[in-house]
């Protein structure tokens, strides 16, 4: 398939997943600011902005309104939900001939209906809407697309983004108090709370919750699950018969980070969570770049310059 099309599919996957992940993180954290009286709003908002990869203003008190305006509504802010939704739609438009019509209509409608303002009592509804639209888009692909290269690129993008989002979420650990409730929050953010409770049958402890989100082999938003799925996509895209090693840079980076997480004692990771999660984010970025170099070569776009003399 055309590199350009493949690239679009890869990014559609990433942007859909990003809008979903961002909505989940914001929903739970903004709600927590209301429910938990012991959180310092300004500090929590700053950390939240920073974790989502957004520049933090040096001065002034930040409130949940500011976070909402920046990370949810601002169409020009690269880390915002609005930006992801628009970009997913733009990518689908570029690959319109390959993207299934149902998916295109779904992304197009989402982008068209994206509100410009949300009243503070409606934020939860808005985030629920974003999650629903993302689920719809993913569902359309999962239910109807043949498992060809197009699907593999889409899933590859989704998986990388999921790993990235979960890593950011885990890094929010330092947002709030040192004890239990915030693990509950983090688990709730990625819809893992109830399945976690069923798996561990008990109160969230730092060790168990981190283990679940980092390396559970069955929970689809855990980092190890997402990274493994990305690796599988890469293998399926290019089945190799070599007897040793891997050749692709992306596979190498992903394999390394997965092994690091899987084989490192969990307490080691916990003691150094922000840095470890930064490494996961670096790895997904590097892998993303490597995939770009390998499959979507830019080359020098030929432009007419007139006759050289």
């Amino acid at each position: 398939m055309l590199s350009r099309i493949a690239e679009s599919l890869f990014w559609i996957g990433r942007y859909i997943e990003r809008s979903d992940g961002t909505a989940r993180i914001l929903d739970v954290h903004l709600q927590l600011l209301l429910e938990d009286p012991w959180i310092e709003e300004n500090l929590a908002c700053r950390s939240l902005l920073q974790l989502m990869g957004s520049p933090v203003p040096d001065e002034g008190e930040l409130t949940r309104k500011d976070v909402l305006a920046t990370l949810a509504m601002d169409r020009t802010h690269p880390a915002s939900i609005a930006y992801s939704i628009t970009s997913a739609r733009e990518n689908a438009r570029r690959a319109r001939e390959i993207v299934p019509t149902e998916l295109w209509e779904c992304l197009n409608t989402t982008s068209a209906r994206m509100p410009r303002k949300v009243a503070s009592e409606k934020t939860h509804d808005y985030f629920a809407w974003v999650r629903e639209r993302a689920a719809l888009a993913v569902g359309i692909v999962e239910a109807g697309a043949s498992r060809d290269d197009a699907w593999h690129f889409f899933t590859l993008g989704r998986s990388l983004e999921q790993a990235d989002m979960t890593a950011r979420l885990l890094a929010t650990r330092s947002l709030t108090e040192a004890s239990g409730p915030s693990w509950t929050t983090i688990l709730r953010s990625c819809g893992a709370y109830e399945s976690y409770l069923r798996t561990y049958r008990g109160v969230p402890s730092a060790r168990n919750a981190a283990e679940y989100l980092l390396m559970d082999r069955l929970f689809p938003r855990s980092i190890v699950f997402s990274v493994s799925r990305a690796e599988q996509c890469l293998r399926d895209l290019e089945p190799r018969t070599d007897r040793a090693g891997v050749t692709g840079q992306a596979q190498r980076v992903l394999g390394q980070i997965r092994s690091q997480l899987e084989y490192r004692p969990i307490m080691d990771i916990l003691n150094d969570l922000p840095l470890q999660m930064m490494r996961v984010q670096d790895a997904t970025s590097t892998a993303s770049e490597a995939i770009g170099n390998r499959y979507f070569p830019k080359g020098n776009v030929p432009t007419w310059t007139g006759e050289a003399s």
């Binding site: 990433r14 012991w38 990869g53 690269p78 733009e90 330092s174 947002l175 922000p274 930064m278």
Partner: peptide
């Protein structure tokens, strides 16, 4: 605990922010 968290936060600041990736075209 609160103070430790704040410290952790500033450390995170020091470690830097990881901006989100974007498609070259977006």
């Amino acid at each position: 605990g609160l103070v430790a968290d704040q410290a952790a936060n500033t450390q995170a600041t020091a470690a830097g922010t990881h901006p989100v990736d974007h498609s070259p075209q977006d």
